[in-house]
Write a protein that binds this DNA or RNA. Sequence first.
DNA 1: TTTTATTCGGACAAAAAAGTCCTATTTTGG
DNA 2: CCAAAATAGGACTTTTTTGTCCGAATAAAA
Lengths: 144, 144
Amino acid sequence: MFSKACEYGIKATIYIAVRSNEDKRVSLKGIANHIDSPEAFTAKILQMLARENIILSVRGINGGFEIEKSRLEHIKLADIVKAIDGDNIYKGCGLGLSECNELHPCPVHFEFKKVRDDLRELLETTNLKSLAMDVSSGVSFLRI
Amino acid sequence: MFSKACEYGIKATIYIAVRSNEDKRVSLKGIANHIDSPEAFTAKILQMLARENIILSVRGINGGFEIEKSRLEHIKLADIVKAIDGDNIYKGCGLGLSECNELHPCPVHFEFKKVRDDLRELLETTNLKSLAMDVSSGVSFLRI
DNA sequence: TTTTATTCGGACAAAAAAGTCCTATTTTGG
DNA sequence: CCAAAATAGGACTTTTTTGTCCGAATAAAA
Ligand code: FES
Ligand code: FES
């Protein structure tokens, strides 16, 4: 469904959100440990997210990653997915035709489109704050 | 969503179904042309599908691929996807946790599960015959 | 000012997915 | 039987994804 990079990106961002909500900044090492991801690879993904202004990175001692608290509920899962995997999952044809086009549909188009639109809806409406709250309260988990 | 191999596999199988429904057997070359896929790579995928008894392969002159007409409506998209990509798309966690478990859910589990189950439903209920009919009647297309 | 803890970024390495090529095998028509 | 036409399958190559390493840049603390 999502690439590994995107999975790590989502989990990392949620973890940063959890800690930012407690006014804590978190280091790469802390992130990689909490989401159980390869550290150096995670660094690359965090760089992408920082360049896209989804997270904020701070260099030097006591540096790390954070997200402005007030933005938490405005950042959607879709922002992260789009930054890492692009929007093919929303827009692309499920059978790989060059474009998904109602007027030239592939055999699964009409059924597939529903599922894809539900996924898009999910990603576009789910915000970081609620995801972070669930993790904080032990309702959901980022690893194992 | 699906691997390239799986996309080719689905399209190839639908095309074989179209022709089988007209009591024709079709060659690798014919398939690759009609679904616009790399021939040698498509051959590998057809071998997999033949080993899984989803399609029937016939060697030698006038050989090719076919599907028993009476089976067309009993073969589901899910059979093809499972044979090529496995069942991770049905069963796996959307964020890559080692397993998708209600009792230890990832942050997107409850929303994601709905979409995933809809996809599973779609794949498990869509049969080859109806897909082939749509292509035959010009309602849907296998290439471009 | 120096040391230390941190991210950044480029180059590299490994693994997986996608794709190619060639020979062997099978089948049928001549 | 022999030649031709087809799939089977193993070895190989290319591309993409995933992952590692290390030095440079930065910022705070000592
Ligand atoms: S054309 Fe294939 S999903 Fe729309
Ligand atoms: S635990 Fe992640 S989708 Fe179920």
